[in-house]
Design a protein around this nucleic acid. Sequence first.
DNA 1: CCGCATCCTTACCGATACTG
DNA 2: CAGTATCGGTAAGGATGCGG
Lengths: 124, 124
Amino acid sequence: MVAANWNAYEAECPTRAVLDRIADKWTVLLLGLLAERPMRFNELRRHVDGLSQKVLSQTLKSLERDGLVTRRAFATVPVTVEYSITPLGASLAETTNALRLWAEAHMDTVVASQAAYDRRGADA
Amino acid sequence: MVAANWNAYEAECPTRAVLDRIADKWTVLLLGLLAERPMRFNELRRHVDGLSQKVLSQTLKSLERDGLVTRRAFATVPVTVEYSITPLGASLAETTNALRLWAEAHMDTVVASQAAYDRRGADA
DNA sequence: CCGCATCCTTACCGATACTG
DNA sequence: CAGTATCGGTAAGGATGCGG
């Protein structure tokens, strides 16, 4: 079986919930990092500017639950925890990376469009 | 000039704001619809189950401001308003469609992973 | 070092009512 | 038909302190 009749345009479809999770700013940024190499908790935190430890914790837990990321704890002192991407997560990371790269590539155009839009509305 | 040194991992970078907007459930669904053909306001509303008229209005305004969607009003009675995608929006829609299709394609795997995760935590 | 628990603020969102 | 305006609940998110 290859395809199912999932349809994200229906509110009750579970696809909607998953789409809501993966179409998330932090998910995109974290998958982008973990697609390159495994990282530890505070390492991720340092790489993503503005991400609080609380939200990072929540996001990683969701990613782990969805099978996109694997968490491994080492009984060192103090504890070392490593997060790595799964094959499923890697397949998603290709798409989310495309999203991030689109944003970085078209920023100039978007910013210009915003400025033009705001100018038009300024003379109200 | 082709590339700039935008980096979405920095909080102050405007890319961050744009990423936050396009990595959005409703944006993904709306761009998917408008990539196929122009649509009217209530037509979009009917196609996206669970999307309130208020949020639709906000989202369309943001998309228009970012230059991803064009709004055209016709002086009929009652007023007719048509939303269509721009070339910039179309280029983004390719990526966001990939995101939606990924969700629909891998739902079974994700749901299974969630169930396994919840089972492990159940015996706490 | 890796988190969880708590408090508290805020911004999001749905529901409703009303205009062009 | 295509919105705007207002209100109220809710849940996300920052700050802080503690525990494994």
